[in-house]
Nucleic acid binder design. Sequence first.
DNA 1: CTTGATTTGTAAAGTAATGAACAGTTACTT
DNA 2: AAGTAACTGTTCATTACTTTACAAATCAAG
Lengths: 178, 178
Amino acid sequence: MDRRILKTQEALKKAVIELMSEKNFDDITIQDLSDRANVSRGTIYLHYLDKFDLLDNLIEEHINVLREMCRTASELDFIKATLMWTEYFERNYSFFSMMLASKGAPYFRGRFLDLLIEELTNEVDVTKGKNERLNEDLLVRFVASAYVGVVEWWFTNKKPVPHHVLAEQLGTLLERNV
Amino acid sequence: MDRRILKTQEALKKAVIELMSEKNFDDITIQDLSDRANVSRGTIYLHYLDKFDLLDNLIEEHINVLREMCRTASELDFIKATLMWTEYFERNYSFFSMMLASKGAPYFRGRFLDLLIEELTNEVDVTKGKNERLNEDLLVRFVASAYVGVVEWWFTNKKPVPHHVLAEQLGTLLERNV
DNA sequence: CTTGATTTGTAAAGTAATGAACAGTTACTT
DNA sequence: AAGTAACTGTTCATTACTTTACAAATCAAG
């Protein structure tokens, strides 16, 4: 892939994250993005429809990485799997912090919850064991909401515990409920 | 000026400074620069003849900024003028440190000394005052060499004093001798 | 010396990014 | 309400950068 494409897209993604930490997303203009990313204004339209499309792509990209991690970690227990996620959270702290802490972008929370529901549905088994006689959708919803809530808490409170502790405890709770 | 030009040149300058802190300049290949700057190998030749030309341009650029500072600061006393320089040293620490500390690039020291001799020649006056009866070239050489020596000491010893102290003391010594 | 592997410098064809211009919105000020 | 300032989305010709390829040079063992 042409490295020019990657470079401008990287610059734009970095720019939108930076600007969102400085002002409301609604107040960010295409001109702001052009200035911050040091990319011609017209160039932005070669890649994205508008600033919303840019943000959507950024979100989708991270969601896809997390989904992919779920797939490759399907052999592992919940603690190790969650550790992969929290390490990714750590590496991309500014992005997730922006999306989950502060009311920044409510859209992302939904996408994140959807992903969890999607992936957990493959994991739970209500035909036997501790979850026998539980409604599957209800159980999945329960665990997914809890998970998202804890991750939100972690970001809004600026990492009150190290990411591996978060992983270990979230993993344990997952193990107990799924 | 086309921002693409500025961007690739910036990337290449940054790359060469980074690489020089990791290996000998002679061991740096054009391929290394291409990889580090994330710029196509062929593109480098659109801007520079070879890696030496790249380094020369980088050096010349800094020398020119310093020279320009001399001109604009000709109204100021030596302490204030030196402060402008040391602030610039501070902002571009990695470059100057690379060029003056460690035997990195002996070429730069010469260019730096030449600049000082050039600029000091406009300042000294051997027709009257404390320097009456002194040989002008000898005096200029004396002060310039001393100045360069102190700056080298400052970088090789990793900023043993804050830059404004360096400026104040160097400025005082200049005042006393010129 | 010869072989094989890097590196170098150059060329060619294609593509993405550029600045400049444009009309059409939107959003303040007066 | 009118004016004006800023932003948007699009078009256009130009240009810098891209990948790929190639021959020459440099270099390191065998």
